[in-house]
Design a protein around this nucleic acid. Structure first.
Length: 605
RNA sequence: GGUCCCGUGGUGCAGUUUGGAGUGCACGCCGCCCUGUCAAGGCGGAGGUCGCGAGUUCAAAUCUCGUCGGGACCGCCA
């Protein structure tokens, strides 16, 4: 792992590319001009970034294209305004020593004796395009084409393209074949909510937009593709978040005759190539952690391992407690170094959040110095705890003077969940700090829970996930045994973001049948839901395994953005709207009629 | 489905706690001056439905309720 701060390299313009950029209007790019160009007469095109008018006969105009800025010395600029599109023809001259601008890549030169042609005039932009001020995101999105002129958005989109390109090269060099799969498909049950598209030729029927190419890539394996990949658009109609859009891009991959290790190795190679392409740095082997360890130590299946505040097991400390709140199946805590300084209102706020996340309460204890170098616990509940319990608690947490202890007692999954969220709330560093901490989380459980009503286990990944071979025996056991069954499913995590997941697929009919039985899916139901896949599997499916990871998230983390909207050219707001196009919009009644659709009245209140 | 935060000239903020004249700051915009600036500088000017709607009050940017928009998060995302 690299410990350096995330530092995407500036976009590099190789001589190979620059050679192809001249057009009939320009000979050079603004950002490429250097002392080596001195003496040449050049034409550059771009937008007026700023102008400094000194008098009728002297003005400096900064001209901007995506490669950067160059200063043009012009004889008056009365007819130029911000964001005008101009072509400047002039002579590259070296700046005198005292006029060199070290903040500018082109700062050792400037364009002199300039002729300026206005190619387009522009109204003043609705917000300033410099990087000095934040602008309301709705306004940026409404005028996204202006926002994209900003250097940061240019960097983000160009880095994204670099990543896509690196992915393709890495996958192809490992023998993966790019195959495109359809966007209009049959709706398959389970998983996320589908986006649907009404059929005109068969009114009343619908296509679904793919949540992922999952079933198609497995069909590719049956089809002898051997190794498939696709940079695939996926669509899920679920609530949006900082790391979730309706539509997002995944590197989707599948391998024949492959084990979990084979997949992890191939994806690791590709991820390493991407990081190298963006940062120039080499990542070592990506460490692995079991799902159980992640849950117990970090309260999450996507642990952010950039910082401590790990969950400490305390159940044994309070097995014989008299304190009612601690008479629970599981007690865990986190130790916040220096947290004794937290104000009462901060602690109340943390308690409120813990409750909102589902805890019955949050026990806090300030660790204060006591006699003889020992410590005592300052807490509203200290009086309910025995001296032995307090001593054991201090020992287990290794608490020292000035620390804060936060404890939650409840069912084990609840304790993990609440403390895992508290840990992030208190300690999570900004996205661009702490380096790149990739992590494979392996040995996910096959079933995430048992439905209390039906007694049936609920699939944690999808029903084609291969159980761990060592746990086959448990498939015939009690509900408790079933929850202990591990699967050959794995996630790739980076700095607490789930980048993607994959699994070894079931290719044997007898195992598939057994898993369907356990999930309570009858043969008829399975045929109805996944019939085409099961049919295909009757004709010789190779053992196969695959993976998919979110490219938007990887790009965001590599450029140091907290939000994937910053690395998407035209994203949607949290409510799924596009301020630029106004989507979603009403449609013409004639279109509805053609599709055989009629709208229900909108809810009045 | 839920919790929390935000909405004030074109942009970003302060003002709201404790109601009293649309008050202030920075940037931008327009005009004039200025021959070495690079976040140019100086002088002057224009620009407001305080998101919207009710309510309380002598009086609301400020308090209450509702609503719309934006954001963060929980649920959801096999």
């Amino acid at each position: 792992m690299t410990d350096s701060p995330l530092s995407p390299r500036p976009v590099v313009f190789s001589d190979d590319v620059l050679e192809h950029l001249p057009t009939h209007l320009r000979t050079n790019m603004c950002g490429e001009l250097r002392p080596e160009h001195v003496g040449r007469t050049v034409s550059v095109c771009g937008w007026v970034s700023s102008r400094r008018v000194h008098s009728e006969h002297l003005a400096f105009v900064d001209l901007r294209d995506y490669t950067g800025l160059v200063q043009c010395v012009v004889d008056g600029a009365a007819d130029l305004r911000s964001e005008y599109v101009v072509r400047v023809t002039g002579t590259v001259v070296a700046r005198e020593e005292q006029w060199i601008n070290p903040k500018l890549a082109t700062g050792e030169v400037e364009l002199a004796d300039c002729t300026v042609e206005v190619l387009s005039v522009a109204e003043p932009p609705p917000f300033q395009l410099d990087e000095r001020h934040e602008t309301d995101e709705t306004i940026r999105l409404r005028y996204r084409y202006l926002d994209l002129r900003r250097a940061q958005m240019q960097r983000n989109l160009r880095t994204r393209a670099t990543i896509n390109s690196a992915i393709r090269r890495a996958m192809e060099s490992q023998g993966f074949l790019e195959v495109e799969t359809p966007m209009l498909i049959a709706s398959t049950p389970e998983g996320a909510r589908d986006f649907v598209v009404p059929s005109r030729l068969k009114p009343g029927s619908f296509y679904a937009l793919p949540q992922s190419p999952q079933l198609f890539k497995q069909l590719c394996m049956v089809g002898g593709i051997d190794r498939y990949f696709q940079i695939a658009r996926c669509l899920r109609d679920e609530d949006l978040r900082a790391d979730r859009q309706f539509e997002f891009m995944q590197l989707d991959a599948e391998m024949s005759f492959a084990s979990q290790d084979d997949v992890l190795s191939a994806i690791s190679t590709t991820v390493a190539a991407v990081v190298e392409a963006v940062t120039g740095e080499t990542i070592g082997e990506i460490p692995r952690m079991t799902w159980m360890e992640a849950a117990e130590r970090f309260g999450s299946d996507k642990p952010d391992v950039r910082f401590g505040l790990e969950l400490i097991e305390l159940t044994d400390v309070f097995t014989a407690t008299e304190f009612n709140a601690f008479k629970a199946p599981c007690i865990k805590g986190i130790r916040v170094p220096g947290g004794a300084e937290f104000t009462r209102s901060r602690l109340d706020e943390l308690t409120d959040r813990a409750k909102r996340w589902g805890a019955k309460g949050l026990v806090w204890m300030r660790v204060k110095p006591a006699d003889a170098g020992s410590v005592e616990l300052d807490s509203p509940v200290a009086k309910f705890l025995s001296d032995d319990e307090k001593a054991a608690l201090v020992a287990a947490t290794e608490a020292v003077d000035g620390d804060l202890l936060l404890l939650v007692a409840d069912e084990r999954p609840k304790v993990r969940h609440v403390l895992g969220l508290l840990r992030l709330d208190i300690g999570r560093p900004p996205v661009n700090e702490g380096g790149l901490n990739f992590l494979w989380v392996v040995d996910f459980p096959l079933f995430e829970s048992v439905d209390e009503a039906t007694g049936r286990p609920v699939s944690a990944h999808h029903p084609f996930t291969m159980p761990h071979e060592d746990d086959f025996g448990l498939l015939d056991g009690s509900p408790e045994d079933l929850l202990g069954v591990r699967s050959q499913a794995y996630d790739l995590v980076l700095n607490g973001w789930e980048l993607g997941s994959g699994s070894v697929r079931i290719h044997r009919a007898d195992i598939q049948q057994r898993v369907f039985e356990l999930l309570g899916i009858s043969k008829e139901e399975a045929q109805l839901k996944f019939g085409f896949l099961l049919d295909a599997f009757r004709f010789g499916p190779p053992p196969h395994a695959g993976f998919a990871f979110g490219i938007d998230r990887l790009v965001a983390l590599l450029v140091g953005e907290e939000n994937i909207r910053e690395v998407i050219a035209f994203p949607k707001t949290q409510s799924g709207a596009d301020p630029l196009t106004q989507a979603p919009t009403d449609i013409d009644p004639a279109q509805l009629a053609e599709l055989g659709l009629r709208l229900l009245p909108r809810a009045a209140d």
